[in-house]
């Protein structure tokens, strides 16, 4: 199995305070990993280390081939291009349409051919089930639709891993299930997904590998990935 994420003895700091210590974690290609724990338990901070928003202060980490110990500021954008990041509050570019949100990512990563960009944008919107919403502004969409746009944006560069930080935190239970189902289906295509959430209830419907952040350490709850419960 190809290893996508590798953390060894990593400590997670938030404002000089240690929130997680001795994190040892490995995620393989196509794997879906739940990261659960109470608010403030360090889930989001651990994800931030993975996408280099927080500096790695202690331990070793390799994410999609980038060694975080030696990662320079100039390399950060290139690391993030191999990742897809999904946030609780979507973080869409509110000054442009859905299609422009997605094409921005492609242009930022070197795509120039307008026709190819349009084709890719349409394909990924179709994939997340909002193929007709390309011309809408983010504020014209529901929360679930906005999160689908965020997932489409995360997917658009065919990332090796998607890091989802509380992707259902702002959504109602039915929409939350739809989003988790969508992420689960994406993971089956070979894209690893690390999903942080405190909403254990809605995630328990999809039995898979689960890591719990509690009392400053992580604990593996279920190491056997299983298909979703119908």
């Amino acid at each position: 199995m190809e290893r996508i994420i590798y953390l060894k003895n990593v400590s997670v700091f938030q404002n000089q305070n240690i929130v997680l210590a001795n994190v040892n974690l490995s995620v393989n290609k196509g794997e879906l990993l739940y990261l659960i724990g109470k608010t403030g338990s360090g889930k989001s901070s651990l994800l931030k280390i993975m996408y280099a928003e927080l500096p790695l202060q202690k331990g070793e980490a390799e994410i999609v081939g980038y060694n975080l110990q030696t990662l320079t500021a100039k390399e950060v954008p290139y690391l993030r291009r191999k990742l897809g990041i999904v946030f609780q509050d979507f973080k869409l570019l509110t000054d442009r349409t859905v299609a422009d949100n997605l094409s921005f990512v492609l242009k930022a990563t070197g795509w120039e051919d307008a026709a190819k960009i349009n084709t890719q944008v349409l394909a990924v919107l179709e994939r997340v089930g909002i193929g007709t919403k390309g011309n809408k502004m983010p504020y014209e969409l529901s929360g679930g639709e906005q999160q689908r746009v965020a997932i489409a944006r995360a997917l658009i560069n065919n990332p090796e891993v998607i890091l989802a930080d509380e992707p259902t935190g702002n959504l109602d239970p039915i929409t939350s299930n739809e989003i988790i189902q969508l992420l689960f289906e994406i993971s089956k295509t070979g894209c690893a997904i690390v999903m942080a959430s405190h909403d254990v209830g809605s995630m328990s419907r999809y039995a898979t590998r689960t890591i719990k952040c509690e009392n400053g350490v992580i604990q593996e709850l279920n190491t056997t990935p299983t298909p979703p419960v119908a």
């Binding site: 993030r80 291009r81 973080k91 570019l93 509110t94 990512v105 242009k107 930022a108 560069n157």
Partner: peptide, 18 residues
């Protein structure tokens, strides 16, 4: 007024130059 947009651009892999 655009600081969050700028940060989001960074998070999706845009370089500073872009």
């Amino acid at each position: 007024a655009k600081r969050f947009l700028i940060k989001t651009m960074q998070l999706v892999g845009a370089t500073q130059g872009f």
